[in-house]
Write a protein that binds this DNA or RNA. Structure first.
Lengths: 261, 261
DNA sequence: GAGGTAAGAG
DNA sequence: CTCTTACCTC
């Protein structure tokens, strides 16, 4: 089973690129972030025509997340991260697909630091921690996947020294990410490529992609139960070079069939 | 000599379509309207690369007119319709190309009727009348060409009864157009196709092009001196069906070489 | 730089 | 509907 994440930065503007990539990569499950479309303007018809069914949680202008699947039924579990009924931003959607809990997230950016947006990010991470601790405790096969807006280590950024006070790299969020891993979640891409520079995002500005001035923000975390099934993975970084591409590249992993292990 | 007019509705957004049509139609002279670009953002390089030189009068957001020519020198005569120094809208540019006076215009829309915009339209037509009377008096070979925003007759609109109080069809502007023809100007497209329904504009709304709910707004008027050289003409209406097309279609005529008559 | 929104014009 | 500008976010 191939599971992917792609921050599309506008699902309608990105549709040609998204469909081209789906056709090429043929993932079984795709988590999308930054739909930037209200619920009723999700391009379901075109997604269906490409062979995918979908659930999504839209929002006008910002955020918005979706889970797509080809050939597997999608059973929605929830469309909000528990812990704050006041939080109306569409950043989390959770479903069960082929007996696996898929948690698709678009974690707050948090800039500027310091400030209320950074505080919101920390609070959001706390709530995520509670949810993911539960999943671990319940011993479920689960995937936490999406745009974390967290650069996990100095090795995951072109010039670490420039990022010290950026919300994507602040020590608080790196520590929180590390704490999740300590609980048992596997950073699958880093595990597969322990020594390689791997980026998933290159800014539109300053020809960041041409200079490979990127950062690693999009992650696929596997619960202990699933970790042994990790077969392969990667970043489709060439997609970032396509015409009218998102500033993120798709990230994917492949899991061994359950019977095989 | 093939002379064309095309209301592009944004010269920068329309560039792929414009270049494709230029390549296909190979006009010698092209009058453009609704550049919707300030003077410094006219895409001269791309126009030059397509083999055309150009003069233009831009304006931020609205209006804007240009004259393009392939292989002929363009001698600019004026870039404003005489008669009102207060009028700063870029709606008129005049040049001599191959001994012919080319008057490229984007006549005010004039809606809503009644109101100051309609009054401005009538005043603009008055000034145009003065200028074109002069050209007739001087016996010059001249072409008045562009988007007149005038539906000349009931035969030039899908459903005339719906347009009685529209500034494009108001009796005042139709009368004014008729008066120009009486002075000696030849409505070349109508002359070539006296019996046919001919439209040059189809609204973006309500699938107007699919329903062929169009109107005839773009005209090519020939001075008496030139009328005998009229060889052929037409509307490239298929261009209106292209992806990302303008709401207008290009209109063109072909003149016999001067020696030939 | 490139998405989104909104208003104004057509 | 589809242009434009100006603004906001990342």
């Amino acid at each position: 089973m191939k599971i992917a994440t792609y921050n599309v930065n506008g699902v309608n503007g990105r549709l040609p690129v998204l469909l081209r990539w789906l056709q090429e990569a043929q993932p079984d499950v795709v988590c999308l972030q930054e739909l930037k479309a209200p619920q009723e303007r999700f391009p379901l018809k075109e997604i269906n025509d490409a062979g995918y069914n979908a659930i999504w949680h839209g929002q006008k202008s910002w955020n918005g997340v979706a889970i797509l699947s080809k050939g597997y039924e999608i059973t929605e579990v929830q469309r909000a991260l528990p812990g704050d009924p006041e939080d109306i931003q569409s950043r989390y959607i959770e479903a069960i697909i082929d007996q696996i809990v898929i948690c698709c997230l678009y974690l707050p950016n948090g800039n500027p630091y310091p400030g209320p947006k950074f505080e919101y990010k920390l609070a959001w991470i706390d709530r995520l921690k509670k949810r993911t601790d539960e999943l671990i405790k319940m011993d479920l096969p689960a995937v936490i996947i999406g745009d974390f807006n967290i650069i996990p280590t100095p090795f995951d950024v072109h010039k670490p020294e420039r990022w010290e006070n950026d919300a994507l790299y602040r020590i608080e969020v790196r520590k929180a990410f590390e704490k999740m891993l300590k609980k048992g979640w596997l950073d699958s891409i880093r595990t597969l490529f322990p020594e390689e520079k791997i980026y998933t995002f290159w800014d539109y500005l300053y020809k960041a992609y041409d200079r490979d001035a990127g950062i690693r923000l999009d992650h696929v975390l596997l619960s202990p139960y699933l970790s042994s099934r990790l077969k392969s993975g990667g970043v489709d970084r060439h997609v970032r070079g396509w015409e009218k591409s998102s500033d993120h590249a798709p990230v994917w992993i492949e899991l061994e069939k359950e019977g095989k292990q």
